[in-house]
Amino acid sequence: MLAFIIRRVVQSAIVMLVVALVAFALFRYVGDPINSMVGQETSLADREALRTRLGLNDPFVIQFGRFVGNALQGNFGISYRLQQPVMELILQRLPATLELALVSGLAAFILGVSAGVYTALNRRGVIPSAIMAASLIGVSLPTFLIGILLIWLFAVELQWLPSFGRGDTVTLPGGWVTGFLTSSGRQSLILPAITLGLFQMTLIMRLVRAEMLEVLRTDYIKFARARGLPNRTVHFGHALKNTLVPVITITGLQLGAIIAFAIITETVFQWPGVGALFINSVRAVDVPVMAAYLVLIALIFVIINLIVDLLYYAVDPRLRVERSAARH
């Protein structure tokens, strides 16, 4: 057990190091950070001096070593663009993204599971077919277009919901800025959450449907039926319970994806989260923010992955390292 945990942790550390290398190397050579830091009129000599002062002329290995050393202390430097410590910026924006991800993730989970169970139990018929078809329309439209259409319909034409931002926020003790506690904050959440959650909802719905159909044909369900248990108990007490294990696993793993997909949603809705921070930083070649963001996303994923691994191990030692194969 201990050996397994150590091996997994070491592997995760290597993964993080690789991500750090990729994050650092790529963005170090995309665009010219100096150009985004100084005005158009700054002379070439001044630019070169600034370049030297920032250490951008040092050898790659030294720059990377410095980057990792600082990153371990939570120090990703100062944003070129916003001139604040990157870590502080990300922590400021993280609540917005996490609240959005949480709401859209939860909504996607609840709606996805309900619709999945419904369509699995009612395989033929107009309504289930319509749900399946409608779910495909959701994944067949690019996210940005869905967002813009929602704004156009609900904010401009109907004027029911706000078109951008988080509305009024309240700061909780500990520094968490929440939009849940004000009505404008809750209203502002609706359109971005739909935009972000639609894809995940479809994914979960199809997964639940497929898993349910599989489980419903197992002997164990047949025995349950043979025992004369009512349909309700069979479906929800047995079939759904068995279905939910892989579904929850996948949903957990999707959390990283939701946070990252928030890039597009946050861009369209001017949602002040880390995704918008990232894309704005890409546009301005704000290297420290981009690097920190990539490392953050990877860290979230690695931690989720690690927890899932350990849980699997705890639940079923037979699975050991082979769990990847069992995940499909």
Binding site: Q11, V15, L26, V30, L253, I264, F301
Partner: peptide, 24 residues
Amino acid sequence: RIADVQLSFPSILIALLIFGVARG
């Protein structure tokens, strides 16, 4: 493990990264 790392980045992000490399 490479696949795991890759999965932690959505395709959009990876494509942005590859564009960055290609630019170089």
